[in-house]
Design a protein around this nucleic acid. Structure first.
Lengths: 122, 122
DNA sequence: TATCTATTTCGATGGCCGTCTATACGGAAG
DNA sequence: CTTCCGTATAGACGGCCATCGAAATAGATA
């Protein structure tokens, strides 16, 4: 049983789980709309780097201040991107004391990977 | 030796090939910019459905007229989306007689899938 | 309570993007 | 050569989005 942070949409992961690999069967309009939201979130260079920073971090947790330091962008801008990534189910967040820590949701990334997987050409 | 249709960028596939999986190492700014272009192309519901239509088509080839018929959008709009997908290296096109046929570039989709792949949590 | 720090939210702005209509192009067939 | 069909390009319009600075919130400390 998973617990989802507020502001996070569970529907999207469900849509991902129900969507067939692109190479097997065309997506219907609803599936495409859901999946596209996640890809759109990954379609920004800053957000993509944020995901890679969080995903590759040993221990899995990254403080917002660590992320902010990696970019020459204002802190509210980073916060905005984190919110977008959270809304599509790629990240979760947890507050401890003054700091907020972000974690990857590996299931979402895994579903996307499976969706794009192309059977090897024999 | 592959032949690339005009208007198609080869650099993007090279960037994809050189980019480590998100879960292994953070992307640098250049890698992120390139990869994000491809995800952004997939971040539109119509384009995502087009890719799934082409990718799942037995024989691999889809005529533009088949795609246009699947949407309630004007023909120029579909043509625009096809161009975007071509520019990021997801599709190629070939003209035969009056018709233009689009094909998937499985390598690009495969690289994206590998990029998102998350090692199973043991 | 007062205050300091870390983070989020708000409101505004400039630029990019999806869609359309109209037009141009390419090739096949009279 | 002209006409027709399928597709691509050009230009315009409206809406969305990345970014910023300023203000609000949450929590710790005193």
């Amino acid at each position: 049983m998973a617990v989802y942070t507020e502001g996070q949409s569970m529907e999207l992961l469900e849509i991902l789980e129900c969507s067939p690999p692109l190479a097997r069967e065309p997506l219907d309009a609803e599936q495409a709309a859901g999946v596209a939201r996640v890809f759109k979130a990954l379609g920004d260079p800053v957000r993509l780097r944020i995901v890679s920073i969080v995903a590759s971090r040993a221990g899995g947790e990254v403080c917002v201040c660590d992320i902010t330091g990696a970019f020459e962008l204002s802190q509210p801008t980073i916060s905005h991107h984190l919110k977008v990534l959270k809304e599509v189910g790629l990240l979760t967040s947890e507050r401890r004391a003054s700091w907020v820590y972000y974690r990857l949701v590996p299931e979402t990334l895994g579903e996307l990977s499976a969706l794009l997987d192309v059977p090897a050409t024999v």
